Simulated scan of single mutants.
Amino acid sequence: MRRLASAPIFSLGFRPFFLAGSGFAAIAVAVWAVWLYGRLPGAQPVGGMLSWHRHEMPFGFAAAIIAGFLLTAVPNWTGRPGLNGWPLIGLLLVWLAARLAWLLPIPAVALIALQIPFLPLLAWVLGRDLVAAGKRDNYPILLVVALLATTQAMTLWGISPDDVGLQRNGVLAAVWLIGALMTVIGGRVIPFFIQRGLNRPAAKPAHPLPTRILLASSLLSAVAFAGGFNDVPRVWLAALFLLIGGLHLLRLWRWHDRGIWRVPLLWSLYLAYFWLAVATLAMALWHLGVLPQQSLATHSLAVGGIGGLILAMIARVSLGHTGRLLQPSKAIVVGFFLLLMASVCRVLLVPFSGSGLALSALFWCAAFALFLVCYSGILFKPRV
């Protein structure tokens, strides 16, 4: 047992959670696609397959990657030891129990009881270190994790067919909260990665006001989803999403360097962040009555933005934090391309062809399967 706790895989949070999250991403989307095309007969989980899919993508897949990233980043920010050994194993088991609970024939109350603990535990672990180190500039990240826990409670309360609207509001709020978190993290690391990756001189710090407006606006958009204000088009929300999209484009313009297109670990991040701008501008178009389906904007964020940023980020972080050269294999570069194609198929092909969903799911699953193939050996082995 002592040997298990001291294994390299449990030395820091990114190792087990990146593996678990990416593996779950491939499995969960494959199951969802097979069910959508009528190839998965038999009993359904509590609330049905739609409830399962809605809950598990933000609170199973994305939450695992967020946990892995923050459990690795917070020790760097605070100088305090990261979660490892049995405490890390325990947190991973809490996450795993929540995933397996959907497969068990248990009442809804028991299912909810197994889902709830993970995010509050994660917030407590992160908050303990941030408060002890006095890192107040990172408190917004802690706030987003706490708000995610709140939206999860809304989603779980809406498992009942009578509260399906509450479930939808909770899930959409969670997706846009994750988008807000990606805005914060991306705004910190992408320009830094570009500067370091291309050996450019450090840029003059940008004025903090646009960043603060972007974060506040992103959080407000998530609150609007939680409150059900996105059920019908509203002009004031169109203005809000236009503001967010414009600030995203301003960031992309400031970050751009022609050299990024030669470096896969940079263009993958840059293009994924571009999908955040696409998603917010698409929401503005829906509120203006131009875009026919709100789900196209949502999946621009979920597949292109969140999925793309996650794959690009875990590919780079896994190399950097295991002491390896920042030179991804050709296979994971193919994975970046496949995830980009998954985004294009889900957003641009689905309105015109029934094969769009199948192709998008296939490309998504292949991309995360390639991550597992390329990185499992790295994450299980000690730091170089």
Rank of each mutant, 00 (worst) to 15 (best):
R2C: 08
A7T: 07
P8W: 09
P8Y: 08
S11D: 05
S11I: 03
S11A: 15
L12H: 14
G23H: 11
A25S: 07
A25L: 03
W32P: 01
V34C: 05
V34F: 08
L40S: 11
G42T: 12
M49G: 09
R54D: 08
H55M: 12
M57N: 10
A62Q: 12
A62H: 13
I65F: 15
N76E: 07
W77L: 02
R80M: 14
G82Y: 06
L88F: 04
L88G: 02
V94Q: 02
A97M: 12
L114Q: 10
I116G: 04
L122V: 04
L122A: 03
L130F: 04
L130E: 03
G134I: 13
G134F: 08
R136Y: 07
R136F: 06
P140L: 10
I141M: 06
L147W: 05
L148T: 01
T155K: 02
G165A: 13
L172M: 05
V175E: 04
V175T: 08
L177Y: 11
I178W: 14
A180C: 12
R188N: 05
V189L: 13
I194A: 01
N199Q: 14
N199L: 14
A202G: 09
A203P: 09
H207P: 11
H207Q: 13
P208I: 10
A216K: 10
V223R: 10
G227H: 03
A238N: 02
F241I: 05
L249P: 01
L250A: 11
G259F: 02
W267I: 09
W267G: 10
L276A: 14
L281P: 01
W286K: 07
H287Q: 10
H287N: 15
H287L: 11
L288E: 09
L291A: 12
P292R: 08
Q294V: 12
S295V: 12
S300L: 11
S300H: 12
G305V: 10
I306V: 15
G308C: 00
G308W: 01
A312Y: 00
Q327V: 15
A331H: 11
V347H: 00
L349D: 01
P351H: 00
P351A: 01
F352K: 00
S353W: 00
L357V: 15
L359S: 00
S360W: 04
V373W: 15
G377F: 06
I378T: 15
L379F: 08
